[in-house]
């Protein structure tokens, strides 16, 4: 497995795995309701990762995942370097990194006591993640589309197209994925699905990055 593939795989498994384990532990410790949050929207992701052991798992896993997201964007830049301009690549990487740092800050301020939590920071960080990620992924998708027309092999192109279409549909139909302190049931459902689709977009590069490798070129 190449370095690029490892980063794509870890970015997906660590982020989605953390959310899944957090939810499992939260329901086992009765700090979150048992349901199918993708359908019922009984809880949002943030509230599953605040109290008890679930809080520790969520904070550790998501902060670590954010660091991998930053590296994922470095990989994406290297992959597209020969097919895209510097300004476009800089913009893509800037928004991608900014969104990952937004999630990192938003996660780091979560504590078990709801009243003492710095919600303003969390809400801004989480929204920066979703909105910034949509901008970064959109730039990324356009660059991939152009690169593909220039001959770049993109095995995951259909998957990426479907994910982009769904993410934009959710953004337009539901006025974006906006995170708040108390979210409506519909917003909670959207948050779960949007997170999954972003995770799948990260994973999709696993099939594209077989040749993204660390190479020692001895001088």
């Amino acid at each position: 497995m190449s370095f690029g593939q490892s980063i794509a795989l870890i970015s997906f498994i660590l982020s989605m795995g953390t959310i899944a384990v957090t939810y499992g532990v939260a329901t086992a410790q009765q700090t979150a309701a048992i349901c199918n949050p993708f359908i019922d929207g009984c809880t949002d992701i943030t509230h599953t990762g605040m109290k008890g052991d679930a809080g520790f798992i969520f904070r550790g896993g998501m902060i670590a995942a954010c660091a991998f997201f930053v590296v994922w964007w470095v990989n994406m830049r290297v992959w597209l370097t020969r097919y895209a301009g510097k300004i476009a690549l800089n913009s893509m990487q800037f928004f991608g990194t900014l969104s990952a740092l937004g999630l990192l800050v938003g996660t780091a301020v979560l504590i078990p006591e709801k009243d003492a939590t710095r919600w303003a920071v969390h809400v801004k960080g989480a929204n920066l993640f979703f909105q910034g990620m949509l901008v970064a992924l959109t730039i990324n998708y356009v660059l991939i589309l152009k690169a593909r027309n220039k001959g770049l092999s993109v095995p995951s192109f259909r998957m990426k197209t479907a994910l982009m279409a769904i993410l934009w549909f959710m953004f337009v139909a539901f006025a974006g994925v906006t995170v708040g302190i108390e979210m409506s049931q519909g917003k909670r459902i959207i948050e779960w699905w949007a997170t999954l689709f972003i995770g799948l977009y990260f994973l999709s590069s696993y099939w594209d990055w077989q040749d993204i490798k660390l190479v020692h070129t001895s001088s």
Binding site: F3, G4, V74, N75, V78, W79, T81, R82, S153, Q210, D211, I212, K213, L214, V215, H216, T217, S218, S219
Partner: peptide, 11 residues
């Protein structure tokens, strides 16, 4: 690690 870089190898 000056000569150790992330790169896209041509297939």
């Amino acid at each position: 690690w000056r000569d150790f870089r992330l790169t896209r190898l041509e297939q």
